[in-house]
């Protein structure tokens, strides 16, 4: 039986792991490699790492109390994660060209996410998909509610693209992406549950897998999202960082309540 996935999303900023809220508040919560190791030990279904930093920044922090040696570049960082990852790894953030995709995939990522290029250069997204296959290109679509419309924003929520999520999802699929990571900006870090209505609308409108993200505050929110939408996967960030054994416990609950959980 096909299993729906529960996916931790880790956000990196300038080489630090951060907790994100409303796409604007970022609290540093430590060394990303430690977080990745914890996820691997939990045997998560898949892992998404998104670099939300503004530019290529050094990953080394000159912290002598960290036992791992300082990582200085993005490719080196991906290689270190990939060596430990026996599970699928998606790496996103600042992916703008076929060369960017190649750099991430050759260093060990299985998929990348694209966001702003769906607005700025869909032809380049198509080139990425024909080179690496649609399965390797995930559209990251961020939206906030404007009245009754789920309006898409790119550049980490800073730029209104002038379209609603369903239109945007179709545009991304036409460009060649194989999956959609749908994130509610309003609910980022809000812990009040998933936006079931928008997730359903998008999952019913497209025939590629949809990963729902934004709003998990407790494991029952996962159950509700799996039960009430056709999302192929549910993703979350913060909830997995601050509670002891949050992922394994959530999986226990989900397996108890639903048949299609690994």
């Amino acid at each position: 039986m096909y299993k729906r996935r529960l996916i931790p999303v880790l956000f990196l900023k300038d080489g630090w792991m951060v907790r994100s809220e409303s796409f604007s508040i970022h609290q540093a919560i430590g060394d990303p490699l430690h977080h990745v190791r914890r996820m691997v030990q939990w045997d998560v279904d898949e892992l998404i790492v998104i670099d939300i930093g503004d530019a290529e920044m050094p990953f080394g922090h000159d912290r002598v109390d960290y036992r791992n040696k300082a990582v200085t570049t993005l490719p080196e960082f991906i290689r270190l994660i990939a060596v430990e990852c026996r599970i699928p790894l998606t790496f996103g953030g600042r992916v703008r060209s076929v060369a960017d995709v190649r750099e991430r995939i050759h260093n060990g990522a299985d998929k990348v996410t694209v966001n702003s290029q769906i607005a700025d250069n869909p032809a380049e997204v198509t080139k990425m998909a024909t080179t690496f296959g649609s399965q390797a290109i995930v559209a990251s679509i961020d939206y906030r509610m404007v009245g009754n419309e789920a309006r898409v924003y790119c550049d980490r929520g800073a730029r209104d693209v002038g379209a609603d999520v369903k239109t945007w999802a179709r545009r991304a699929i036409d460009a060649g992406v194989g999956e959609i990571l749908l994130t509610s900006i309003d609910r980022d870090g809000a812990a009040r549950g998933y936006d079931l209505e928008t997730i359903s609308a998008v999952a019913n409108a497209v025939n590629v897998p949809v990963i729902a993200c934004g709003g998990a505050g407790n494991p029952l929110h996962f159950v509700k999202c799996f039960r009430e939408t056709r999302a192929s996967a549910v993703a979350a960030g913060n909830i997995f960082h601050f509670t002891e054994n949050a992922y394994p416990n959530a999986k226990l609950l989900l397996r108890h309540q639903l048949p299609d959980i690994r």
Binding site: Y2, K3, D45, G178, E179, N207, V208, P209, S232, A233
Partner: peptide, 13 residues
């Protein structure tokens, strides 16, 4: 054009 969601991505038996 079909109801089958592709690519088939994820864990399966």
């Amino acid at each position: 054009v079909s109801r089958v969601r592709l690519p088939h991505v994820g864990w399966n038996t």
